[in-house]
């Protein structure tokens, strides 16, 4: 038996909007730790890891570890039927081939339940080793989204370079080139407006902008984004989900042949 009650149901709606275009089908894993997901895109270039910790739910009952295969597009269709202020409860019985999403309006005058068919998904769970990164950049998530969108109108790839001068995003295309440099800036009114650069050593990597733009669909989940870079590792683009966990996107770099 599984019953997870999330008062801030909009979080789950936002999570689905953030990942449904990157991943078609995925297993949601439920354990004492929380509600999690790990999935790759169909071309095995990017990986998304989601964790919503059990403590973040108002009620969290998960009698035994359960993996539920869902089509994310269908799940998104169902969650779009929940109001932004609704409380969302996810329910499943042991051995059932369906999951139920229950939506309660804040004043309890409307209760809806949507039952969705589960699917068997052969997914490969990958071990992600703990790593020391050469550079970690924290910046406003809206700023990062803006840069990725702007650069993708010029080119297909972005070179992200971190030096002591700051973090530089560069692209080139048929019509020309573009460079955006963000310097460390901690003299701001609100902490989420800061750009903080922790650099162990300079690093420069190239990535497909199509994926970066897809990751920025998580922008509504967090005011800040953390970008971790190392020359021999995929980039990590992390959006923290307040008091609940995170959504992390890993993207393999492009390399010179």
């Amino acid at each position: 038996m599984l019953e997870l009650r999330l008062v801030q149901g909009s979080l789950l709606k936002k999570v689905l909007e953030a990942i449904k275009d990157l991943v078609n089908d995925a297993n949601f894993d439920c354990s004492a730790t929380g509600f999690s997901l790990q999935a790759m895109d169909s071309s095995h270039v990017a990986l998304v890891a989601l964790l919503l910790r059990s403590e973040g739910f108002e009620h969290y009952r998960c009698d035994r570890n359960l993996s539920m295969g869902m089509n994310l597009n269908n799940m998104s269709k169902m969650l779009k039927c929940a109001g932004n202020d609704d409380i969302i409860t996810i329910k499943a019985d042991d051995g059932s081939d369906t999951v139920t999403f229950m939506f309660e309006s804040p004043n309890q005058d409307k209760i809806a339940d949507f039952e969705m068919k589960l699917m068997d998904i052969d997914s490969e769970h990958l071990g992600i080793p703990e790593a020391e990164y050469q550079a970690i950049v924290r910046m406003p998530s809206s700023e990062f989204a803006r840069i990725c969108k702007d650069l993708s109108s010029i080119g297909d790839t972005v070179v992200i370079s971190v030096t002591k001068e700051g973090v530089k995003f560069s692209t080139r295309g048929d019509i020309g080139t573009a460079n955006v440099v963000c310097r460390q800036n901690t003299t701001v009114d609100k902490p989420e407006e800061a750009t903080v650069i922790e650099m162990q050593e300079p690093v420069s990597l190239t990535f497909a902008l199509r994926y970066m733009n897809s990751f920025t669909k998580a922008t509504p989940l967090s005011g800040t984004v953390t970008i971790s870079l190392s020359s021999d590792l995929p980039i990590v683009v992390e959006y923290k989900i307040a008091e609940m966990g995170y959504i992390r996107f890993y993207l393999a770099p492009k390399i010179e042949d």
Partner: peptide, 14 residues
């Protein structure tokens, strides 16, 4: 010419 690496070349199946 640039080549796109796969995520599977960095992370092992567990």
């Amino acid at each position: 010419m640039q080549r796109q690496k796969s995520i599977l070349s960095f992370f092992q199946k567990s």
